[in-house]
Design a binder for these strands. Structure first.
Lengths: 207, 207
DNA sequence: TTTTATTGATTGACCGTTCAATAAAAAATA
DNA sequence: TATTTTTTATTGAACGGTCAATCAATAAAA
């Protein structure tokens, strides 16, 4: 029953099937045969719509990345010029959105992280995401803190978010979202309030 | 020139070659043929000394894990009953030891993390390491903080360490060890000093 | 009739494992 | 000491299996 306009439908189906396959089998065992079977199509379709397996994997990572960006942006757009703290909490909440904390998505992220170290296209995608998070955090901290402190706070919070996330992905009991958010909130509060006794490195420390 | 006692020599060689291969090619392309070639032996040797590829990978992860444990323990053993802060700094320093922050080891860690999600033996190893870090941090914070705060501080610092580490591994410019250590130190200080205004969740928050 | 969608068998490459063969040291024997 | 025998170490070709990609064939709109 080939009609016109199958492309977006098939692409969605196959990306979803890829996420499921990586969740259940891992990236190494997520073969195009298994992905195609899960999507209910033949293997040839993958090459037809994605130019091979690499294209499918890249599109899948793009999808997860877009979902993350949307989860953050939706929460922030309602805030207007609310205080920095509100924006920082919104960024945290977005990063721990349901769409990003499901078992399958966390596993996929981890797989893509590892894979991106040896695959330039994935590395670029991953880098864009990294810098966006840092840049968002940094500009919010900058509204309240001097430049150097804002930078360190952003680096620290980014590490905290990724670390909570990583440990949640690895832990058999999964990620406790509420607890993770609270720890990140605590870090934000500590950064925003007590700024005076902080370590003040010289510029050469950052060579 | 086959003599006796080749086993420990070959095992060391092959584990080293595995680290190098994962660094250069990634886990997916680190085939036994390539690993064997890099070690200057034939492929058969791997099965002979490691019972196949899985055994070699497990042994490699064990090696990296043992190095990490040693890096931490060496720093702590000199401290005796020094203040909690000193022990926490030693744990941080151990986690950012030179043996753990080389490009090849960080890549290998990341690969093993991803792989451990679908490979029970690796998952067990990874879990032991995770719990050891948390347990070490927790017991030191416990010397100074009430139970719940100590637990949260340990969870937060563990996430911070892993997060700094992860972001260092992913960043093209690599990990800035001094900066990472300083951010972790700052977190320790904030946890140890300002304990009164902290968020106090009810037990149900931790369900 | 042309275009779009889809199949799935085929192909060629590569993977990990196995194992018979070989070599050299160590141990046993004369 | 000189010799066989046993043990340990090692090789690499062969094997069975799996993978991603290809492409001729087919089917149903347009």
């Amino acid at each position: 029953m080939p009609k016109l306009g199958m492309q977006p439908i098939r692409r969605r189906q196959l990306i979803q099937a890829t996420l499921e396959a990586i969740d259940e089998l891992g990236l190494a065992d997520a073969t195009i045969a298994r992905i195609a079977k899960r999507a209910g199509v033949s293997t040839g379709i993958i090459s037809h719509y994605f130019n091979g397996k690499d294209g499918l994997l890249e599109a899948t990572m793009r999808q997860v990345l877009a979902d993350l960006g949307k989860a953050v942006q939706e929460r922030r757009s309602a805030l207007g010029d609310a205080p920095a703290k509100a924006h920082l909490h919104a960024i945290i909440d977005g990063n721990f959105d349901r769409s990003q904390t499901s078992r399958s998505v966390m596993k996929t992220w981890l797989a893509f992280w590892a894979s991106s170290m040896h695959h330039a296209p994935l590395q670029r995608l991953q880098r864009v995401n990294d810098r966006r998070l840092y840049s968002n955090l940094s500009s919010q901290f900058r509204r309240v803190l001097p430049k150097r402190q804002a930078r360190d706070a952003a680096r620290g919070l980014a590490a905290m978010i990724d670390g909570l996330w990583l440990r949640g992905a690895l832990a058999p009991e999964g990620l406790n979202v509420d607890r993770a958010r609270q720890l990140a909130y605590d870090y934000v509060r500590e950064q925003l309030e007590g700024g005076t006794q902080r370590h003040q490195p010289r510029a050469s420390d950052y060579a």
